[in-house]
Amino acid sequence: MSARIGVVTFPGSLDDRDAQRAVRLAGAEPVALWHRDQDLHQVDAVVLPGGFSYGDYLRCGAISRFSPVMDSVIEQARAGMPVLGICNGFQVLCESHLLPGALTRNDSLHFVCRDQRLRIENTGTAWTSAYVPNAEITVPLKNGEGRFVADEHTLDQLEAEGRVVARYLDVNPNGSYRDIAGISNAAGNVVGLMPHPEHAIEPLTGPGTEGLGFFASILKQLVSA
């Protein structure tokens, strides 16, 4: 039986079908989860996709965090289920307090869409184990509010515990503190990432296939578990 990976659709989710495609191409079975439904349908892991859930009104991710599905996701994540939040999903994870810090307006004040180089600095998480340590990859980045911020103490703690999962290379596209592109929780099962690995899974439609590793990682973990 192949691994079942849920992809949540909130009203305003945009990259949900793309995340499902990435799950499928990695060899797992994508399962569509609906924001109003608390039932996670026995999935083994969950992806919170990119987009503008609830229009990003009030604050990015602030409303989604209170949707019924998130009650279950938060509970399961605390119990160890792997969860990947991409872009808006990362924002939802921060609002849910599954991850520390916050994502604020890009320092350029503009939305930015670019092919971004990253370094994968922690290959010990559920979502990055398929990468070699310090792998340098290129995946699309597209956000208006992607600037990761946290207090110095939190940043130091993230660094000390190796929880900086990915860091921007060449250009810091949004003013994120310490060039942070993605982080994990202490257990390593919850990862938030601003860039979009689900858009780098086919050479035809992305800058390459170097994003596939996130989905291959989770599959590897679930199959070997």
Partner: peptide
């Protein structure tokens, strides 16, 4: 200008 637009969403942009 164009980097302020999302060209990747839907995953079919060739």
């Amino acid at each position: 200008i164009t980097s302020q637009y999302d060209r990747y969403v839907l995953g079919n942009t060739v």
